[in-house]
Amino acid sequence: MNAHTKRDITGGLALCALALAYLWGATLIPQSTLSDEVGARGLPFALGFLLALVGAAIAVKAWLARTGTHREESAEGGASLRRVLGLLACVALYVLVAWLVGYIIASAVLLLAVSLYEDAPLNLRTFGVAGAGAIVFWLIFVKFLNVEQPIGKLLAGS
């Protein structure tokens, strides 16, 4: 079984699991006395069943074609799961710092973290780019465009 087949079987089964979770959620939707015949649950139930069917069809189709001819493995997904989770961790760090100390410091932290994570050298230039970039963003968005940005819990009262 090649990577393409494994990918489609895993994807199909994941869709089935998502459909089941969604259907379970549909059972929790309250019934309203104002409801029409289809009701608030009507579409969610239909969507859940359809997704389960389509997910199963994708998995079965991939399983049946496992010994047949295969296309080249697509590299469209690019980065590995570990790299992707690392980059998302940089976003989580931004949220945490922004919540605590506000936009400008969080911006510098995000610029520095992502640059280093994306293999920029650990030198004064990278720190300078992060610091200057944060100030430029703050000037453009907060001062010039007056766009709302996080103030920071620790600085909110000051």
Partner: peptide, 18 residues
């Protein structure tokens, strides 16, 4: 590319929060 990625990410975060 490292710096470009960082700036694009900050642009996204700033925009979404706004």
């Amino acid at each position: 590319r490292a710096y470009l990625a960082a700036f694009v990410m900050l642009l996204v975060m700033s925009g979404v929060y706004s």
